[in-house]
Write a protein that binds this DNA or RNA. Structure first.
Lengths: 119, 119
DNA sequence: CGACTCGTACGATAAGCATCGTAGTACGGG
DNA sequence: CCCGTACTACGATGCTTATCGTACGAGTCG
């Protein structure tokens, strides 16, 4: 019974525990346009997405940086899966900590996107 | 009948119009502990408060800075009233732009405050 | 093994920001 | 008119951050 099931690949990444997630940190993470966009896309798809799925207006190293900020502030969960790194929203934890907040934020972001350009 | 009603005093301060308020800006403004605290207090009191009403763990110049950030990002409205500077939440504008968001944010902040120390 | 893809690490850079102290302006009251 | 109160302006400082480029590590597939 060594390494039976999912085998998420060797190295794993540091995530804050649910109780460690701070509202200020979440808000800071979402206050960047690139990161807000990532979260919106993650929410829209509803599934885990690899980093490379996103077509962002920044280089790869900057992309890595933004994903790390989102992870370190408890907004997303990241795990390696072979060569890809999968990203998923921490909906369960965020909804438990701050009921309804994530949905309102996403709605607000969608409304704003509709108002301005990218409708 | 000169100077009848409020007379908010000569100089006034630049505020963004409602349509100019950006979600990212609001989130950034609220991602600072001191500013989040100010907003929570403003919401709790429900009325306009002078800057000096707040007992914050920073100096007066830093306090001025935080109020300006809140104003410039459309979170609060500021107006001079004699020697005092009154501050009020822009509830109407925020609720119109991002329905329900402010309340969720305040609830989330309250929950977090209850969980950790300051209950 | 070798090549390719995905993502990271590290260093550099430039900008932003939270903080302070001091000096100054605006207003109201004696 | 002078003084006290309320807040600002300015400059300094040190920390954080968004961005990039290049070089590297980990996995997959031929």
């Amino acid at each position: 019974m060594t390494t039976v099931a999912p085998v998420p690949s060797s190295r794993d990444l540091p995530h804050p525990a649910r109780e460690e997630i701070r509202l200020e940190g979440v808000l800071h993470a979402l206050s960047d346009p690139v990161r807000l966009r990532i979260v919106r896309e993650l929410a829209a798809e509803g599934i885990e997405l690899s980093c490379s799925h996103f077509d962002l207006p920044v280089t790869k190293s900057t992309t890595t940086h933004h994903f790390r900020v989102l992870r370190e502030n408890g907004v997303i969960r990241q795990a390696y899966e072979g060569t890809a790194k999968m990203n998923g929203l921490r909906r369960d934890d965020l909804d438990e900590l701050f009921p309804g907040l994530l949905d309102r934020l996403l709605t607000a972001a969608a409304r704003q996107a509709a108002r301005h350009g990218e409708g």
